[in-house]
Amino acid sequence: MHILLTNDDGYNAPGIQELYRVLKTKTKHDVSIAAPEGQRSATGHSITLFTPLFVTEHSLEGPCKGFSISGTPSDCVKLAIQGKLIPKPDLLISGINQGANLGTDIFYSGTVSAAMEGVLLGVPSIAVSLANFEYKDFGPSATYLADHLDLLLKLQHKGLMNLNFPGKPQTQWRGLKVTRLGKAIYENIFEKRSDPRGRVYFWQSGNLIRDCEDDTDLTAIQDDFISVTPMHSDLTDFASLQAWKDFFSDKL
């Protein structure tokens, strides 16, 4: 199997490099990398249209290659697959991200968006995150994923699998839960300031309000479980679809 790794933390980020090392050590899969040349967190599903994309090639073990790219995470996936930098992969893994991608935060996440781009291009994809910005040991998460990769693939899920690991030692993990997306709502604060030349700017911060329902990814991580959430690219509100058809049928 050919796996493409990508992320939003950058080609040299420890999460993606540790995942590559573990996959090459513990599996027999071919592994390529196409990732941003630097930090691109919270870029969502943005793509680059009005500037060129620059590519630096890196040698990897075996026949596969790595590419650091001057664009966004979604750019990296599109260029790697549609630009034929690599043969079309059988699986895309985005991560391991430094920090959680839970609840409604997935709409801002470059990690999840890169994985969703893989889905849009017909490649089953997994977004993987370590739910802590301070905890730096990616080894247990990478090893867990490598050890259970064949099991996860038996689901034959054609969409996106969003996987978050507790950001603490593996001895404190309590197992795995299949979850739905929770709601992460921010009370944003925009502090108004002025630079030395008098130009006004704003510095964004705020507090996170999380829902506490038992079956969400947010609660699972809070309770030290691995969270796995099945997702797909179709945002249609099917519950409203027929009602809207009936409502508008004789009005327009």
Rank of each mutant, 00 (worst) to 15 (best):
L5M: 06
G10C: 05
G15Q: 01
I16K: 03
I16Y: 07
L19N: 01
R21I: 04
R21V: 07
L23K: 01
D30Y: 13
V31G: 07
V31M: 02
V31S: 05
S32C: 08
I33P: 02
P36K: 00
E37Y: 10
E37S: 15
A42D: 12
I47Q: 11
T51H: 11
P52K: 00
L53F: 07
L53I: 13
F54C: 12
F54Y: 15
V55C: 07
V55W: 07
L60C: 06
L60V: 07
L60Y: 08
P63Q: 10
P63S: 08
F67D: 03
S70A: 02
G71E: 04
G71Y: 03
G71S: 04
T72I: 05
T72R: 03
P73Y: 04
P73C: 01
V77T: 05
A80M: 00
Q82M: 14
I86N: 02
K88R: 15
K88W: 03
L91C: 05
L92T: 04
I93W: 02
I93Q: 00
Q98P: 06
Q98C: 10
G99H: 00
A100N: 09
A100Y: 01
N101E: 13
N101V: 11
G103F: 02
T104W: 00
T104Q: 06
D105E: 15
D105Y: 12
I106N: 00
F107Q: 08
F107A: 10
F107R: 11
Y108V: 06
S109P: 08
S109E: 04
G110H: 03
S113A: 14
A115L: 07
L121P: 03
G122A: 05
V123T: 04
P124Y: 03
S125E: 05
S125D: 08
A127N: 06
V128I: 11
S129P: 07
A131N: 08
F133Y: 09
T143F: 11
T143P: 10
H148F: 11
L149A: 01
L151G: 03
L151Q: 14
L152T: 05
L152E: 04
L153Q: 09
L155F: 12
L155W: 14
Q156Y: 09
G159N: 02
N162I: 05
L163Q: 00
K168Y: 09
P169W: 01
Q172H: 13
G175T: 07
V178R: 13
G182S: 03
A184I: 13
I185S: 10
Y186S: 09
I189F: 14
F190H: 15
K192G: 11
K192Y: 09
R193I: 11
V200A: 11
Y201Q: 06
S205T: 15
L208Q: 11
I209C: 10
D211C: 08
D211W: 13
D217Q: 02
I221G: 01
Q222H: 12
D223H: 13
D223G: 07
D224N: 15
S227W: 00
H232Q: 10
S233C: 12
D234E: 14
A239F: 13
S240L: 15
S240D: 15
L241K: 14
K245L: 14
D246T: 12
F248K: 14
F248N: 13
